[in-house]
Amino acid sequence: MNKVLIALITLVLSGCASVPTAPLSESSKAKQFLAPSENKAGVYVYRKDIPIGVALKKDVYINKECVGETAKGVFFYQEVEGGKEHFISTESEFSPNGLMLNTEAGRLYFIEQYLKPGIFVGGANVKVVNEEQGKSEVIRTQLAVKGTCTSI
């Protein structure tokens, strides 16, 4: 039994998941952190480029609609209606985890999707980070292609 568990952990830690990324020109444009469209707020959801959980892909949703699937070192950018509350969530090991984000028109928001230990494959959660930290992290990642969620 211990050998099976060790093999599973090794597989999860050594494999490397990837998702389709947008052309570099689109990624570069999103990293300019321009003001969102009128009456909109901009939401960046990113996953750091760190070696923990590299074999795991996790879906991200805004208001229960698929934004896309993350892997290490990617981000999504999506405009949402300003002056409203939005539900940002991610799939996790047993159930989705999420947060409510009150937005103001004209502002940018940064949400970090992070992995956490799980019983079988690992979980995920999301948290709001300040603009300075968010920009610093997004600069080191690539824009992922939107719209592919596998947990639906």
Rank of each mutant, 00 (worst) to 15 (best):
D49L: 13
P36N: 14
L108V: 02
K64A: 02
E38T: 15
T10Y: 09
C66W: 10
Y114T: 00
E79H: 00
N2R: 14
G98Q: 07
V12F: 15
A17I: 04
V74F: 01
Y77S: 08
C16T: 01
P36Y: 13
L143K: 00
Y109F: 01
I88H: 10
L56D: 00
N102R: 14
V67Y: 07
G123Q: 03
A144M: 11
S28K: 13
Q78E: 12
K135F: 06
K64N: 15
E65Q: 14
A41V: 05
Y77C: 09
L24G: 04
E26W: 05
M1E: 15
K146A: 13
A35S: 15
G73M: 10
R107H: 14
L115F: 09
V4S: 14
I88S: 09
E85I: 03
N39Y: 13
Y61P: 02
L99H: 08
S136G: 12
P51I: 10
F76H: 04
Y109C: 11
A22N: 06
K58V: 02
L24C: 05
Y61M: 08
S92Q: 03
M1L: 15
N63E: 10
T141L: 00
K84A: 12
V12S: 02
G53Y: 12
F76M: 08
F94K: 01
I88M: 07
A17C: 04
P117E: 03
P36E: 13
N102Q: 15
T141Q: 08
E38H: 13
V74G: 08
S151W: 07
P117K: 02
N130Q: 12
R47I: 02
L8R: 11
D49S: 10
Y61S: 06
V74S: 01
N102D: 15
G82L: 09
M1Q: 15
V45K: 05
